[in-house]
Amino acid sequence: MHSRLWCIPVAALVAAAILAVCLVAPTEETMGDAQRIVYIHVAMAWLALVGFLIVGAAGAMYLRGRNLLWDHWAQAAAELGWLCASLTLATGSLWAHAAWNTWWTWDPRLLTSFILWAAYSGYLLVRGSLDDPHRRARLGAVLAIVGVFDVPLVIMATRWFRGMHPTSPGMDPTMRLVLWLSVFSFTGLFVLLLAIRRRQLRQEGLLADLERQTPLEDRYAKERTCLPS
């Protein structure tokens, strides 16, 4: 698949979603324009969770076949997922300040989002500490699978506390449509970035293999030709 071909339609879709969020969605009565954050926030929260599931599934596939191509999917999804989890916390915090007059409160869903973000951060830290690609893939996969098992238990544990996060608020049909458009377009952007980043990681891997296969004297010879005379 040529990712570049998809750039224009995905960019158009995201631009349409942002315009719809700003211009088409009706202004909410009590919160005003601050409520528009929700359209981005929900999309980011959804993608953070999807990203985590992709990391876990790709990790399991790596452990099954020991093919590094699966690990490239896992790393790409983890990087994008971390970004989405960070944006979920940031947009949620902005919304909470407008709605509840506080930047942060220990509501169950906020706690779940924070745990997801911390799990992503730990996963990326572990990967960053390892040089050998297979070792990095193997330990990363173990951590991701443990995380995937943990997420339902975290959700269950935190929901049993009383929460103040809106669960399924009644929405105007136009608002609902804009929300779906936002989720759909940002999912498209996520998939596109995932494909681009995965291809980049694969090329990095191929380059590293090539360097390992090149005899040392050839590499030195190549470096010498690059030096200014």
Binding site: L111, I115, A118, A119, S121, G122, L125, V126, S129, L130, R135, L139, V142, L143, V146, G147, D150, L153, V154, M156, A157
Partner: peptide, 26 residues
């Protein structure tokens, strides 16, 4: 499980609490 994982990593001892704490919250 995670201490075993962290023990094989450079400076892993510093990482293990960071890895275990979010997962052990339930």
């Amino acid at each position: 499980l995670l201490s075993g994982l962290a023990a094989g990593i450079r400076h892993g001892a510093n990482l293990s609490v960071l890895l275990v704490l979010p997962l052990v919250i339930p």
